[in-house]
Amino acid sequence: MIDMKSAKIIGMGHYVPDNVVTNQQLEPLMDTNDAWIQERTGIKERRHIVPGGEDTTSTMATKASQMAIEKAGIQVDDIDFIVFATLSPDYYFPGPGVMLQQQLGFKKEIGALDIRNQCSGFVYGLSVADQFIKTGMYKTVLVVGSEVHSGGLDFTTRGRGVSVIFGDGAGAAILQVTEEKGKGILSTHLHSEGQHAEELALIGPATTDWVPNYIERNDAEDIRYYPYMNGNFVFKHAVVRFQQVIQEALEQNGYQADDIDMLIPHQANLRISQFIQKQMNLTDERVFNNIQKYGNTTAASIPLALSEALEEGKVKAGDLVCLAAFGSGFTWASALIRW
Protein backbone atom coordinates (compact mmCIF):
# COMPACT_ATOMS: atom_id res chain seq x y z
CA MET A 1 0.00 0.00 0.00
CA ILE A 2 1.35 3.43 -0.97
CA ASP A 3 2.13 5.72 1.95
CA MET A 4 0.34 8.87 0.78
CA LYS A 5 2.07 12.11 1.72
CA SER A 6 0.61 15.60 1.97
CA ALA A 7 1.68 18.63 -0.04
CA LYS A 8 1.69 22.21 1.17
CA ILE A 9 2.67 25.53 -0.38
CA ILE A 10 5.75 26.87 1.42
CA GLY A 11 6.53 29.90 -0.75
CA MET A 12 4.86 32.16 -3.32
CA GLY A 13 6.25 34.69 -5.75
CA HIS A 14 5.06 36.96 -8.52
CA TYR A 15 6.35 39.34 -11.15
CA VAL A 16 4.71 41.89 -13.46
CA PRO A 17 6.32 44.16 -16.07
CA ASP A 18 6.98 47.78 -15.10
CA ASN A 19 5.03 49.08 -18.10
CA VAL A 20 1.57 50.16 -16.86
CA VAL A 21 -1.14 50.54 -19.52
CA THR A 22 -4.19 52.45 -18.28
CA ASN A 23 -7.65 52.44 -19.78
CA GLN A 24 -7.10 56.02 -20.87
CA GLN A 25 -4.07 54.94 -22.90
CA LEU A 26 -6.28 52.56 -24.91
CA GLU A 27 -8.81 55.25 -25.82
CA PRO A 28 -6.87 56.62 -28.85
CA LEU A 29 -6.48 53.09 -30.23
CA MET A 30 -10.11 52.00 -30.26
CA ASP A 31 -13.67 53.11 -29.61
CA THR A 32 -13.61 52.69 -25.84
CA ASN A 33 -13.23 54.67 -22.63
CA ASP A 34 -12.34 54.15 -19.00
CA ALA A 35 -15.97 54.04 -17.84
CA TRP A 36 -16.93 51.43 -20.48
CA ILE A 37 -14.04 49.14 -19.53
CA GLN A 38 -14.53 49.45 -15.78
CA GLU A 39 -18.29 48.90 -16.03
CA ARG A 40 -17.88 45.65 -17.97
CA THR A 41 -14.69 44.23 -16.45
CA GLY A 42 -13.65 46.16 -13.35
CA ILE A 43 -10.20 46.71 -14.88
CA LYS A 44 -8.46 50.07 -14.45
CA GLU A 45 -5.02 49.16 -15.81
CA ARG A 46 -2.85 46.24 -16.82
CA ARG A 47 0.85 45.51 -17.39
CA HIS A 48 2.38 44.93 -20.82
CA ILE A 49 5.92 43.90 -21.62
CA VAL A 50 8.01 46.29 -23.72
CA PRO A 51 8.56 44.70 -27.15
CA GLY A 52 12.20 43.75 -27.55
CA GLY A 53 12.83 44.17 -23.82
CA GLU A 54 14.03 41.58 -21.32
CA ASP A 55 10.58 40.35 -20.26
CA THR A 56 9.33 37.14 -21.86
CA THR A 57 7.09 34.34 -20.63
CA SER A 58 10.09 32.40 -19.31
CA THR A 59 12.06 35.33 -17.86
CA MET A 60 8.99 36.58 -15.96
CA ALA A 61 8.49 33.05 -14.66
CA THR A 62 12.11 33.01 -13.54
CA LYS A 63 11.70 36.21 -11.55
CA ALA A 64 8.49 34.99 -9.91
CA SER A 65 10.17 31.67 -9.11
CA GLN A 66 13.19 33.36 -7.55
CA MET A 67 10.86 35.25 -5.22
CA ALA A 68 9.01 32.04 -4.33
CA ILE A 69 12.28 30.22 -3.65
CA GLU A 70 13.41 33.03 -1.36
CA LYS A 71 10.08 33.09 0.49
CA ALA A 72 10.25 29.31 0.93
CA GLY A 73 13.75 29.51 2.38
CA ILE A 74 15.15 26.86 0.06
CA GLN A 75 17.83 26.63 -2.62
CA VAL A 76 17.21 26.12 -6.33
CA ASP A 77 18.61 22.60 -6.26
CA ASP A 78 16.19 21.60 -3.49
CA ILE A 79 13.52 21.55 -6.23
CA ASP A 80 12.86 18.12 -7.77
CA PHE A 81 10.47 18.99 -10.60
CA ILE A 82 8.96 21.91 -12.54
CA VAL A 83 5.37 22.30 -13.75
CA PHE A 84 4.91 25.27 -16.10
CA ALA A 85 1.44 26.46 -17.13
CA THR A 86 1.03 28.89 -20.03
CA LEU A 87 -0.81 29.48 -23.30
CA SER A 88 1.87 31.93 -24.48
CA PRO A 89 5.25 30.16 -24.52
CA ASP A 90 8.35 31.95 -25.77
CA TYR A 91 8.51 29.55 -28.72
CA TYR A 92 6.16 27.13 -30.47
CA PHE A 93 8.66 24.57 -29.16
CA PRO A 94 10.49 23.81 -26.94
CA GLY A 95 8.19 24.64 -24.07
CA PRO A 96 9.17 27.23 -21.45
CA GLY A 97 9.70 24.69 -18.65
CA VAL A 98 13.18 23.82 -19.87
CA MET A 99 14.00 27.49 -20.35
CA LEU A 100 13.01 28.16 -16.75
CA GLN A 101 15.16 25.21 -15.66
CA GLN A 102 18.14 26.75 -17.46
CA GLN A 103 17.53 30.32 -16.30
CA LEU A 104 17.25 29.33 -12.63
CA GLY A 105 20.69 27.73 -12.86
CA PHE A 106 19.93 24.20 -11.75
CA LYS A 107 22.97 21.98 -11.28
CA LYS A 108 20.84 18.86 -11.63
CA GLU A 109 18.83 17.81 -14.67
CA ILE A 110 15.33 17.78 -13.20
CA GLY A 111 12.23 17.23 -15.29
CA ALA A 112 10.12 20.12 -16.59
CA LEU A 113 6.49 19.58 -17.59
CA ASP A 114 4.57 22.11 -19.72
CA ILE A 115 0.78 22.11 -19.47
CA ARG A 116 -1.82 23.92 -21.59
CA ASN A 117 -5.01 24.54 -19.65
CA GLN A 118 -5.18 28.30 -20.14
CA CYS A 119 -7.00 30.08 -17.30
CA SER A 120 -7.23 26.86 -15.27
CA GLY A 121 -3.56 26.10 -15.88
CA PHE A 122 -2.16 26.94 -12.47
CA VAL A 123 -4.76 24.88 -10.58
CA TYR A 124 -4.20 21.99 -12.99
CA GLY A 125 -0.47 22.36 -12.35
CA LEU A 126 -1.04 22.46 -8.61
CA SER A 127 -2.99 19.21 -8.86
CA VAL A 128 -0.19 17.53 -10.86
CA ALA A 129 2.40 18.61 -8.28
CA ASP A 130 0.15 17.49 -5.44
CA GLN A 131 -0.15 14.00 -6.89
CA PHE A 132 3.61 13.69 -7.42
CA ILE A 133 4.24 14.66 -3.81
CA LYS A 134 1.46 12.51 -2.35
CA THR A 135 2.81 9.39 -4.04
CA GLY A 136 6.34 10.15 -2.88
CA MET A 137 7.81 10.63 -6.35
CA TYR A 138 9.02 14.16 -5.55
CA LYS A 139 9.44 16.14 -2.33
CA THR A 140 9.64 19.69 -3.67
CA VAL A 141 7.92 20.94 -6.84
CA LEU A 142 7.91 24.38 -8.48
CA VAL A 143 4.59 25.30 -10.13
CA VAL A 144 4.52 28.38 -12.36
CA GLY A 145 1.96 30.30 -14.39
CA SER A 146 3.28 32.97 -16.76
CA GLU A 147 1.72 34.79 -19.71
CA VAL A 148 2.55 37.38 -22.36
CA HIS A 149 -0.70 38.40 -24.04
CA SER A 150 0.08 41.94 -25.15
CA GLY A 151 1.91 41.11 -28.38
CA GLY A 152 -0.98 39.08 -29.78
CA LEU A 153 -3.99 41.29 -29.17
CA ASP A 154 -6.05 43.27 -31.67
CA PHE A 155 -5.81 46.86 -30.43
CA THR A 156 -8.59 48.17 -32.66
CA THR A 157 -12.29 48.65 -32.07
CA ARG A 158 -12.83 45.25 -33.70
CA GLY A 159 -10.84 43.53 -30.94
CA ARG A 160 -11.68 45.67 -27.95
CA GLY A 161 -13.84 43.00 -26.27
CA VAL A 162 -10.68 40.95 -25.73
CA SER A 163 -7.77 43.38 -25.88
CA VAL A 164 -8.92 45.57 -22.95
CA ILE A 165 -9.07 42.53 -20.66
CA PHE A 166 -5.71 40.79 -20.87
CA GLY A 167 -2.36 41.64 -19.30
CA ASP A 168 1.10 40.13 -18.81
CA GLY A 169 2.57 38.67 -15.64
CA ALA A 170 3.77 35.61 -13.75
CA GLY A 171 3.22 33.79 -10.46
CA ALA A 172 4.98 30.85 -8.83
CA ALA A 173 4.52 28.44 -5.94
CA ILE A 174 6.85 26.04 -4.13
CA LEU A 175 5.14 22.86 -2.96
CA GLN A 176 6.80 20.55 -0.49
CA VAL A 177 5.96 17.36 1.32
CA THR A 178 4.68 17.91 4.86
CA GLU A 179 4.02 15.71 7.86
CA GLU A 180 1.47 18.16 9.31
CA LYS A 181 -1.91 16.45 9.45
CA GLY A 182 -4.81 18.40 8.02
CA LYS A 183 -2.53 21.04 6.49
CA GLY A 184 -1.74 21.81 2.88
CA ILE A 185 -3.72 20.85 -0.21
CA LEU A 186 -6.85 19.01 0.90
CA SER A 187 -8.15 18.23 -2.59
CA THR A 188 -8.13 19.39 -6.22
CA HIS A 189 -10.93 19.08 -8.78
CA LEU A 190 -10.43 19.25 -12.56
CA HIS A 191 -13.04 19.39 -15.35
CA SER A 192 -13.40 20.13 -19.05
CA GLU A 193 -16.10 20.51 -21.70
CA GLY A 194 -14.56 20.42 -25.17
CA GLN A 195 -17.79 21.02 -27.08
CA HIS A 196 -17.33 24.75 -26.39
CA ALA A 197 -13.63 24.87 -27.25
CA GLU A 198 -13.96 27.48 -30.01
CA GLU A 199 -16.05 29.91 -27.93
CA LEU A 200 -12.78 31.16 -26.42
CA ALA A 201 -9.85 30.33 -28.64
CA LEU A 202 -6.99 31.37 -30.88
CA ILE A 203 -7.59 29.31 -34.03
CA GLY A 204 -4.53 29.98 -36.18
CA PRO A 205 -1.92 29.77 -37.40
CA ALA A 206 -1.93 26.17 -36.26
CA THR A 207 -1.09 22.69 -37.48
CA THR A 208 -4.44 22.73 -39.29
CA ASP A 209 -3.48 25.93 -41.12
CA TRP A 210 0.24 26.63 -41.21
CA VAL A 211 1.84 30.07 -41.45
CA PRO A 212 2.67 29.80 -45.21
CA ASN A 213 -1.06 29.56 -45.93
CA TYR A 214 -1.59 32.87 -44.16
CA ILE A 215 1.22 34.50 -46.12
CA GLU A 216 -0.12 33.15 -49.41
CA ARG A 217 -3.66 34.36 -48.75
CA ASN A 218 -2.48 37.79 -47.57
CA ASP A 219 -6.03 38.45 -46.42
CA ALA A 220 -6.24 41.47 -44.13
CA GLU A 221 -9.70 40.37 -42.98
CA ASP A 222 -8.43 36.98 -41.81
CA ILE A 223 -8.15 37.60 -38.07
CA ARG A 224 -7.95 34.04 -36.75
CA TYR A 225 -4.50 34.79 -35.36
CA TYR A 226 -6.18 37.07 -32.80
CA PRO A 227 -7.93 35.56 -29.77
CA TYR A 228 -11.70 35.18 -30.11
CA MET A 229 -14.09 35.24 -27.18
CA ASN A 230 -17.87 34.90 -27.16
CA GLY A 231 -18.08 37.09 -24.08
CA ASN A 232 -21.69 36.60 -22.97
CA PHE A 233 -21.55 32.86 -23.59
CA VAL A 234 -18.32 32.52 -21.59
CA PHE A 235 -19.70 34.65 -18.75
CA LYS A 236 -22.86 32.55 -18.42
CA HIS A 237 -20.90 29.30 -18.29
CA ALA A 238 -18.22 30.70 -15.97
CA VAL A 239 -20.58 31.75 -13.19
CA VAL A 240 -22.16 28.28 -13.16
CA ARG A 241 -18.93 26.29 -13.30
CA PHE A 242 -17.19 28.45 -10.70
CA GLN A 243 -19.91 27.74 -8.15
CA GLN A 244 -20.07 24.04 -9.00
CA VAL A 245 -16.35 23.39 -8.64
CA ILE A 246 -16.06 25.41 -5.42
CA GLN A 247 -19.00 23.52 -3.95
CA GLU A 248 -17.47 20.22 -5.07
CA ALA A 249 -14.30 20.99 -3.11
CA LEU A 250 -16.23 22.05 -0.02
CA GLU A 251 -18.49 18.99 0.00
CA GLN A 252 -15.63 16.53 -0.45
CA ASN A 253 -13.94 17.93 2.63
CA GLY A 254 -17.02 18.44 4.79
CA TYR A 255 -17.10 22.23 4.64
CA GLN A 256 -19.60 24.92 3.69
CA ALA A 257 -19.13 28.31 2.04
CA ASP A 258 -19.16 29.98 5.46
CA ASP A 259 -15.99 28.07 6.33
CA ILE A 260 -13.93 29.72 3.56
CA ASP A 261 -11.50 32.29 4.95
CA MET A 262 -10.22 33.36 1.53
CA LEU A 263 -11.52 32.69 -1.96
CA ILE A 264 -9.07 33.51 -4.74
CA PRO A 265 -10.84 33.17 -8.08
CA HIS A 266 -9.14 33.35 -11.45
CA GLN A 267 -9.07 37.01 -12.36
CA ALA A 268 -11.15 36.76 -15.52
CA ASN A 269 -13.60 39.58 -14.93
CA LEU A 270 -14.39 41.42 -11.70
CA ARG A 271 -18.11 41.09 -12.46
CA ILE A 272 -17.79 37.27 -12.46
CA SER A 273 -15.97 37.34 -9.11
CA GLN A 274 -18.57 39.69 -7.63
CA PHE A 275 -21.42 37.48 -8.86
CA ILE A 276 -19.85 34.38 -7.27
CA GLN A 277 -19.18 36.30 -4.07
CA LYS A 278 -22.81 37.37 -3.84
CA GLN A 279 -24.16 33.89 -4.61
CA MET A 280 -21.95 32.36 -1.91
CA ASN A 281 -22.70 35.16 0.57
CA LEU A 282 -19.02 35.95 1.17
CA THR A 283 -17.87 39.29 2.56
CA ASP A 284 -15.34 41.48 0.74
CA GLU A 285 -12.69 40.47 3.27
CA ARG A 286 -12.98 36.82 2.19
CA VAL A 287 -12.51 37.31 -1.57
CA PHE A 288 -9.27 38.61 -3.09
CA ASN A 289 -9.24 40.42 -6.42
CA ASN A 290 -6.43 42.29 -8.14
CA ILE A 291 -7.74 42.29 -11.72
CA GLN A 292 -8.23 46.05 -11.31
CA LYS A 293 -4.43 46.46 -11.49
CA TYR A 294 -3.33 43.63 -13.76
CA GLY A 295 -6.21 42.56 -15.98
CA ASN A 296 -6.64 38.88 -16.84
CA THR A 297 -3.23 37.19 -16.79
CA THR A 298 -4.66 33.71 -17.53
CA ALA A 299 -2.48 30.98 -15.93
CA ALA A 300 -0.62 33.62 -13.91
CA SER A 301 -3.69 35.21 -12.33
CA ILE A 302 -4.26 32.88 -9.36
CA PRO A 303 -0.63 32.58 -8.21
CA LEU A 304 -0.16 36.33 -8.71
CA ALA A 305 -3.23 37.03 -6.58
CA LEU A 306 -2.33 34.44 -3.93
CA SER A 307 1.21 35.84 -3.67
CA GLU A 308 -0.13 39.38 -3.20
CA ALA A 309 -2.74 38.23 -0.67
CA LEU A 310 0.02 36.62 1.40
CA GLU A 311 2.18 39.74 1.18
CA GLU A 312 -0.73 41.86 2.40
CA GLY A 313 -1.40 39.52 5.34
CA LYS A 314 -4.81 38.51 4.03
CA VAL A 315 -3.96 34.78 4.11
CA LYS A 316 -2.72 33.47 7.45
CA ALA A 317 -1.72 30.15 8.97
CA GLY A 318 -4.76 27.96 9.59
CA ASP A 319 -6.95 29.73 7.00
CA LEU A 320 -9.14 27.69 4.67
CA VAL A 321 -8.24 28.93 1.18
CA CYS A 322 -10.13 28.06 -1.99
CA LEU A 323 -8.69 28.59 -5.46
CA ALA A 324 -11.05 28.37 -8.45
CA ALA A 325 -10.69 28.94 -12.18
CA PHE A 326 -12.65 28.76 -15.41
CA GLY A 327 -11.44 29.37 -18.93
CA SER A 328 -10.77 28.30 -22.48
CA GLY A 329 -11.35 24.67 -23.27
CA PHE A 330 -13.72 24.99 -21.52
CA THR A 331 -11.76 23.91 -18.47
CA TRP A 332 -12.48 24.63 -14.84
CA ALA A 333 -10.83 23.60 -11.59
CA SER A 334 -10.58 24.21 -7.86
CA ALA A 335 -8.21 23.51 -4.99
CA LEU A 336 -9.03 23.61 -1.30
CA ILE A 337 -6.07 24.37 0.97
CA ARG A 338 -5.63 24.53 4.73
CA TRP A 339 -2.87 27.10 5.06
Results as ranks from 00 to 15, higher is better:
Gly295Phe: 02
Gly97Arg: 05
Gly318Pro: 15
Ile9Gln: 03
Val234Trp: 02
Ile291Ser: 04
Ala305Arg: 03
Pro212Arg: 06
Gly42Ser: 04
Glu312Asp: 15
Arg224Ile: 06
Ile276Thr: 08
Asn281Ile: 00
Ala257Asn: 08
Glu27Ala: 13
Glu179Lys: 15
Thr208Ser: 14
Ile69Asn: 07
Ala201Lys: 08
Ala335Pro: 12
Val287Met: 12
Ile291Leu: 09
Asp168Glu: 09
Leu310Lys: 15
Arg286Phe: 04
Gly95Arg: 01
Ala201Cys: 14
Glu70Arg: 12
His14Met: 11
Ala72Val: 07
Gln101Thr: 00
His196Gly: 11
Ala7Phe: 02
Ser88Tyr: 05
Ser6Glu: 07
Phe155Met: 11
Met262Asn: 05
Leu282Lys: 07
Glu54Leu: 11
Ile272Phe: 02
Phe122Met: 00
Phe275Asp: 08
Tyr15Gln: 09
Gln75Asn: 11
Ala268Asn: 11
Gly327Cys: 14
Asp222Lys: 06
Asn281Arg: 10
Trp339Pro: 07
Lys293Asn: 13
Ser334Trp: 03
Ile43Trp: 01
Met99His: 08
Phe155Arg: 05
Gln267Glu: 04
Pro17Glu: 04
Tyr225Thr: 00
Leu26Pro: 08
Phe326Asp: 14
Phe275Val: 00
Ile203Ser: 12
Arg338His: 14
Gln101Leu: 03
Gly167Asn: 06
Glu109Phe: 00
Ala206Phe: 09
Lys293Ser: 12
Asn23Trp: 02
Gln38Leu: 02
Ile2Met: 11
Asn253Arg: 10
Val164Pro: 04
Met67Asp: 13
Asn296Glu: 07
Phe233Gly: 06
Gly254Pro: 10
Thr59Ile: 06
Leu29Arg: 04
Ile37His: 05
Glu70Ala: 14
Asp168Val: 07
Ser192Ile: 03
Thr156Tyr: 05
Ile49Asp: 12
Asp78Tyr: 02
Trp339Phe: 12
Leu175Ala: 09
Val211Gly: 00
Glu199Trp: 09
Lys236Ile: 01
Met4Thr: 09
Val144Asp: 01
Lys316Leu: 14
His149Met: 07
Asn213Thr: 09
Ser150Tyr: 06
Pro51Thr: 12
Gly73Ile: 01
Pro51Asp: 13
Ile79Gly: 04
Tyr124Val: 00
Ile74Phe: 02
Lys181Ile: 15
Trp210Glu: 13
Ile110Val: 08
Gly125Thr: 00
Asp319Asn: 15
Gly145Asn: 05
Phe93Ile: 12
Ser6Trp: 03
Gly121Ala: 00
Thr178Glu: 13
Gln279Pro: 01
Ser307Phe: 12
Ala85Val: 09
Trp210Ala: 13
Pro28Asn: 05
His191Tyr: 15
Gly194Tyr: 02
Arg158Gln: 14
Ser307Gly: 15
Gly254Ile: 09
Ala173Gly: 12
